[in-house]
Nucleic acid binder design. Structure first.
Lengths: 160, 160
DNA sequence: GCGTTCGTTTAGAATGTACTGAACGTTAGG
DNA sequence: CCTAACGTTCAGTACATTCTAAACGAACGC
């Protein structure tokens, strides 16, 4: 049987997120939760729809949960839970990029400390890099805040 | 024999860049070129200093070259070439992040197209994400330009 | 024109990663 | 208490990646 368009979309998101450090299976889960109907699904549903083992779904959801991309909610009536993507999941994801920049800046500092003379021409390559990442590190949070106030606040949206 | 501080630094950079999609060996090469003395080194020197095979260094330098992080220069006198890191290597690297954002935005668009009604509440999660990445995609180039004019131009630096 | 040095390419080995499947708690209803 | 549904954990396997080593090509000095 041909996989559905929705299924293939989840697959694509999985591939993309894999290239960003997540595993394909976990990215697939996130992709599916972005478009699935109903938007909240149980472990069994996810496992079935995506052809993943219960184990993969279980650990996958835990990982996504700890990253703040997904959340468990108690399912009313039936026992057990149901998972759904958080409204700002991908914003959360994008915001995290800032940490990477900080790590690189730290590496540049360490490199400079290694050279005899931080002011020598030889140290130029490291100084420029450090200053660049320091700049990014400083500006990115401002950018995020700008988006929040210009967009989210204007539209009166929250993340529950 | 205990590895030198420089060698260990290269190693660290390798690990970090590996977490960003590069392979450890290639990241190691870049790390070494950031701090080594002399700053331009031959394939044989790199291979020896870092304990990598000639093959790894050869392909690694080609990859780094195509990414604009490193360049070959003809060595005067002796036959053969010599490699050095470009002054703005890590800036180049950081700037490339913008492409990732564009790819994610495209994915969000595709997701929206998959839903029956793009304006439905169900589509909210995707709309917000799309708008966020579009915002970032728009703002990041401005930020890079800002850095160039405020820092590089002020200091009168170029990348040859 | 040969020998030597420099660099590239590729097959293969070693290592690491992602996912499954099955065994194991846990909770709730009958 | 017993059974069944639900979820978690973990050992093992299949797969992919990374690096090496060795064969190969190209350029220069003699």
């Amino acid at each position: 049987m041909e996989p559905s368009r929705e299924r293939r979309y989840a697959e694509e998101v999985g591939v993309k997120l894999a290239s960003l450090g997540m595993t394909p299976a976990y990215g697939k889960l996130l992709g599916w939760l972005l478009i699935c109907d109903p938007p909240s699904q149980s472990l069994a549903q996810l496992s079935g729809s995506l052809g993943l083992s219960k184990g993969s779904v279980s650990t996958g959801m835990r990982v996504l949960d700890r990253l703040g991309l997904v959340r468990r909610v108690a399912a009313p009536g039936t026992r057990g839970h149901v998972y759904e993507v958080t409204p700002n999941a991908l914003i959360e994801l994008g915001s995290r990029a800032g940490e990477q920049y900080a790590a690189i800046r730290a590496l540049m500092e360490r490199g400079l400390a290694l050279l005899d003379d931080e002011d020598s021409p030889r140290a130029e390559r490291l100084r420029v890099s450090r200053d660049f990442y320091a700049f990014i590190e400083r500006e990115v949070p401002k950018l995020l805040e700008q988006f929040r106030s210009e967009y989210l606040r204007r539209e009166g949206k929250g993340d529950g």
